[in-house]
């Protein structure tokens, strides 16, 4: 209890716990916002309707027929890949060729319905086509293959990003503004203890956030957990540390909370778009991919999805975890060098 690290950690937890407004805005609000988004995105609308035709006999002919329709955007892919695109929301319908072509749709996606109608109509127009009644429609609704399953890990990544950066940046800047940092700098307090206490507190809160999020994902949205919760926890904690490092770096010289807000937006906005929260990062052109994959949120979202949806273990996630660790370490080293206590 007498150890400075313990005292600093208690300070940090009390700062959060005893200030309901701080707790809400830095923790509750992002969670709620993401859940509202999750609910909203269960029925988002995007045009045109994207259809993947799986490779197989007769695939060429099907593509040729569908391509004449402006509302349809047709792509070819091997069957496995086509199914994965459906899962990720990158296509709205998969057409499996054969004597009796089969339509795969995600009932969670409203576009699935229009895709089905459009494809049926086009196929029916052709001479000698199978009648619409002959077309077999298979809703692919097993949990783990719907858009919401793709979305939720991304939202968890987003929540961890915004709460970690903001919790670090806003409180450090407020403490600098109130000269508390200066006062602490005049004591023999070890600088590492101060930062360590903030990171520990963030880790604890990140665990709470992840627990809450995973429980909701499971109970409300029925999102399955293919991998282990321990792996999700480890990935999420590493993510929280890299974003805390980024938050500390952003806050290292800033004097006012307004500037902190600006820097926060500047750093998080691009990642919200680029890092595959709402749609796969692969949708961006190839030349952007190296940059996108170097972003911490891309690495975090990719890893969370791999664990939650594909059951990946930590060993198979070396590359994205290395990206996260590099951000965490790099930001903290630079932050502590340039940090202003006065």
């Amino acid at each position: 209890m007498r150890h400075p690290l313990v005292q600093l950690l208690l300070m940090r937890l009390r700062m959060l716990w005893r200030m309901p407004a701080v707790l809400f805005w830095s923790f509750g609000f992002p969670l709620i916002a993401s859940l509202v988004l999750a609910a909203a995105f269960q029925d988002r609308a995007l045009a045109p309707v994207r259809v993947a035709v799986a490779d197989g006999t007769g695939a060429e002919a099907l593509v040729a027929r569908l391509e004449g329709t402006p509302e349809l955007q047709v792509q070819r892919a091997p069957p496995e890949e086509a199914r994965r695109r459906l899962t990720q929301g990158r296509v709205h319908l998969v057409l499996l060729p054969g004597a009796e072509p089969e339509l795969l749709v995600d009932p969670g996606q409203p576009e699935g319905r229009s895709a089905r109608l459009l494809v049926r109509e086009v196929l029916a127009r052709a001479p000698g086509a199978p009648s619409p009644a002959q077309l077999r429609v298979t809703p692919v609704s097993e949990p783990g293959n719907r858009y919401i399953d793709f979305l939720l890990p991304g939202l968890l990544g987003m929540v961890l990003m915004s709460t970690s950066i903001w919790a670090m940046a806003s409180s450090v800047v407020a403490m600098r503004g109130g000269k508390l940092l200066k006062r602490l700098a005049a004591t023999p307090m070890a600088r590492g203890h101060f930062v360590g206490a903030f990171l520990l507190a963030r880790g604890l809160f990140a665990v709470v956030e992840m627990t809450f999020f995973c429980a909701l994902a499971r109970l409300v949205f029925g999102v399955p957990m293919s991998g282990s919760y321990a792996a999700v926890g480890a990935v999420g904690l590493l993510g929280a540390m890299s974003f805390s490092g980024l938050g500390l770096l952003l806050a290292s010289r800033v004097e006012t909370e307004d500037s902190a807000t600006g820097l926060f937006n500047l750093s998080t906005m691009p990642m919200l778009f680029l890092s595959g929260v709402f749609f796969p990062a692969q949708n961006f052109p190839g030349w952007m991919q190296p940059v996108i994959h170097a972003l911490p949120l891309t690495a975090l979202n990719g890893s969370l999805r791999a664990v939650m949806l594909e059951g990946a273990d930590l060993l198979s996630l070396g590359a994205p975890l290395a990206v996260l660790a590099a951000w965490a370490a790099g930001c903290m080293v630079v932050a502590l060098r340039v940090f202003r206590w006065t």
């Binding site: 300070m11 009390r14 700062m15 716990w17 005893r18 200030m19 503004g177 109130g178 000269k179 508390l180 200066k182 006062r183």
Partner: peptide, 8 residues
């Protein structure tokens, strides 16, 4: 002048 930790 120092603003202390309000919550403590």
């Amino acid at each position: 002048e120092t603003r202390l930790v309000d919550a403590l």
